[in-house]
């Protein structure tokens, strides 16, 4: 038998070769969170007159990135986070690269502290997330101040931080349910 040059041959564990369908399935699972964020970005940047859309979009994106980087880093790789952040910057009116930078930092924190965080219960995780979200929003505000070279009003940043913290529990419930369903399918 010829050595298989495809990627699966270089995976650490030995697995049977995947069929096309299985590969599509896996790919879809990996892309699911990124697709969700992309759709959210497109939805919220459309002129639909949703109240608080400008604050709700970063809140949803930060919460989603944190959750998936924490529980399933395979579904939310660094490259995906970077591309999504860049996309958000391009669609929105933030300076180019700022969202990508902040989202990468959130991803990094969640990714490297995941083994510590996993032992904690939900409320503590939420507390850590609150700190991360507040830091992210303040960082965004600080960068905006830096680029404008003037002090901007901090109230929107605080509102965004509160919104981010508040949006995490329902999103986390939704994603936990999705993860549960995906794992069930995996078992079959």
């Amino acid at each position: 038998m010829m050595p298989d040059p495809s990627m699966s041959a270089w995976e650490p564990e030995i697995r049977p070769r995947q069929t096309v369908w299985q590969r599509l399935d896996h790919g879809a699972r990996r892309l699911l969170p990124s697709l969700f964020i992309a759709l959210i970005i497109i939805f919220f940047s459309a002129p639909l007159n949703i109240p608080g859309a400008a604050e709700l979009l970063p809140a949803l994106v930060i919460a989603t990135v944190f959750f998936w980087s924490f529980w399933r880093p395979t579904g939310m790789s660094g490259v995906a986070v970077f591309l999504l952040g860049l996309f958000m910057d391009l669609v929105g009116f933030t300076p180019l690269g700022v969202s990508a930078f902040i989202l990468l930092l959130v991803h990094g924190v969640a990714f490297y502290s995941r083994f510590g965080l996993m032992r904690l219960n939900f409320l503590l995780v939420w507390g850590v997330f609150a700190l991360v979200a507040a830091a992210a929003c303040l960082l965004q505000w600080g960068l905006a101040c830096l680029f404008r070279l003037s002090m901007l009003d901090i109230a929107p940043a605080l509102f965004e931080a509160l919104l981010t913290i508040g949006v995490y529990p329902p999103l986390s419930a939704l994603f936990s349910w999705i993860l549960h369903r995906l794992d069930e399918k995996e078992d079959i």
Binding site: G85, F101, L104, L143
Partner: peptide, 12 residues
């Protein structure tokens, strides 16, 4: 990850 962070700073 560090490379991407650096890249984003570069883009900024």
């Amino acid at each position: 990850l560090p490379l991407l962070v650096l890249l984003s700073i570069g883009i900024i």
